[in-house]
């Protein structure tokens, strides 16, 4: 474990917390006759969270962490896996099933088909993998799918244009997590013998590049001190 890896995991954890915080805020409106100002804003417009992306992440973690009961790496590793599995499935549950949270989800804007991402990733994992076993192919599939799972979210952001603050932070934290993982790989490559993982690196690099455009607008909105807006 190095500082980049730990920082990467922590930003990933923070992104999940930001999303849960957002859901909690929306949820807390449930019993009130007058929603709080933040809830009111969230309910007025859509939450800007893509259910498609969240469902893809749930699938990513479900297929990647199949080893949770068979291989023990560390207590840290197991706990983090449980957090990511639990949070991703509960987020999906809230957006689909919770009365209030569901209302803030803009279904008509979030039209990306899972199928277009899942199928090519599955085929690619069957062709390009390190070992042709059930667990290994699904693990590789999870890497490919994670690389592109953010696409429905980025498309939704571009469509809605007016980006809610928490949603912007969420996407930024996810991008930061990927960038830190690249630094982690560079560090490990020079400090650990035989540390070469082409599949992980290339899919991780592709994933990070997808955030480049978002990062550009995120940082210029910070620099100019204006609300984040993506061009049409």
């Amino acid at each position: 474990m190095n500082i980049f890896r730990l920082a990467g995991d922590m930003t990933h954890l923070m992104s999940v917390l930001v999303l849960l915080l957002k859901i909690h805020t929306i949820k807390s409106c449930a019993g009130k006759s007058y929603p709080c100002s933040l809830c009111f804003i969230l309910l007025e417009s859509s939450s800007g969270i893509s259910l498609k992306t969240q469902e893809l992440y749930a699938l990513v973690f479900a297929t990647r962490y199949l080893d949770i009961f068979t291989d023990f790496i560390s207590v840290y590793n197991t706990i983090m896996k449980l957090i990511f599995l639990g949070s991703s499935f509960s987020i999906v549950w809230y957006i689909r099933r919770h009365k209030i949270v569901r209302r803030s989800y803009d279904k008509d804007q979030d039209t990306f088909r899972h199928f277009f991402l899942v199928l090519p990733c599955l085929l690619l994992a069957l062709i390009i993998n390190e070992k042709f076993t059930f667990k290994e192919v699904l693990w590789t599939f999870s890497l490919y799918l994670e690389a592109v799972a953010i696409l429905p979210q980025l498309i939704l952001l571009q469509r809605t244009r007016n980006i809610d603050n928490l949603t912007g932070q969420y996407v930024f934290l996810l991008g930061a997590y990927r960038a830190l993982y690249i630094l982690n790989w560079i560090y490990r490559y020079f400090t650990e013998p035989h540390y070469v993982h082409w599949i992980t690196w290339i899919s991780g690099l592709v994933q990070t590049l997808l955030y480049a455009d978002f990062f550009y607008y995120y940082f210029s909105s910070l620099k100019n001190n204006v609300k984040l807006k993506l061009p049409a």
């Binding site: 890896r5 990933h12 982690n184 650990e192 035989h194 993982h197 992980t200």
Partner: peptide
């Protein structure tokens, strides 16, 4: 190819 840390990353 996985001499160092078999899937030890999240």
């Amino acid at each position: 190819a996985k001499d160092s840390g078999e899937h030890d990353e999240l």
